[in-house]
Nucleic acid binder design. Structure first.
Lengths: 152, 152
DNA sequence: TAAATTTATTTAGCTTGCTCATCATATGCA
DNA sequence: TGCATATGATGAGCAAGCTAAATAAATTTA
């Protein structure tokens, strides 16, 4: 008989997808009462710190495609959290500004993030967590580089 | 004057979302020539190992909502990778079977996963990687528990 | 047995994200 | 100056998730 082949439990598995998804569900649930989502929260956090970003800048900061910012800003604008203003020096460009209504949610967003982190990191040693985050940061850089190498 | 408050670079940041998304883009690009996506690949991998899973079983294994499996299986079926068969003992239930066409892609899926892992893990010490994965596994369990606690 | 509850799947509708393609405007080079 | 190329935003269309709600069938309980 041939060597028994026990299929291993799919080494890496979709663990990154799962963690991201679980975090998103919890985050969204916390923000939902404020008519906000996690993705919108990340975008607003940025826009509160950097006034008048262009959509392309925002895409760059969030590591998403520029086309994705279009509809994201549509929704933020529809909810009254941002304004698009024409750039006086470049007629192609929009400058995005967070409204006061958005700013009033800053603490909400921050504490939702802390809450999700607390749930995720429960029972994990601080040093091990720190080391793991360092590894994750390297992964992100590796993957981003791999994405860049695709077309350029 | 009050203590200067320098906004920190958003501690955790959306690093989990970014890694998951980057991995997905690379994975999808590798599988695209075979008319397959990452999510479909994970599902097929499972269905090849466990014949005749119900849709709810599949959802459970993949940690996705049962409603999500519905359309996922629609697409897999449309591509000829799976078949839905009626369960003879329970008329509510579908049993899902991977086709030969799907089975012929097993190696493709496996090597795509290896390729993405290789890109992500480049230059990372094996022990550190192992330790990080252990931390991630704990995070996943924590988050899944937190999700379960929401309604139950 | 009949009614109430649970379970499996699906439909409807939303959000996020992608690729591919388009349009308008800037910029750079001959 | 004038054309070619690059850039900023958007539109169309698809995939994968979700929540909420509907339907049908099975199971439990009164």
């Amino acid at each position: 008989m041939t060597a028994m082949h026990i299929t291993p439990p799919v080494k890496g598995g979709p663990i990154f997808q799962e963690i991201a998804r679980f975090r998103g569900i919890l985050f969204d649930a916390l923000l939902r009462p404020h008519n906000l989502t996690m993705a919108q929260g990340w975008a607003l956090s940025l826009l509160m710190r950097e006034e008048g970003l262009r959509q392309a800048d925002l895409a760059d900061r969030l590591n998403i495609a520029t086309v994705t910012t279009s509809k994201l800003i549509d929704r933020l604008e529809a909810r009254g959290f941002v304004q698009r203003r024409a750039d006086p020096d470049d007629r192609r460009t929009n400058r995005i500004y967070a409204t006061d209504s958005a700013r009033s949610l800053f603490d909400t967003i921050t504490s939702a993030r802390r809450e999700v982190d607390a749930m995720a990191n429960a029972g994990i040693d601080a040093d091990q967590l720190e080391a793991a985050m360092t590894v994750l940061d390297q992964m992100r850089r590796n993957l981003k580089a791999a994405l860049g190498d695709r077309d350029d």
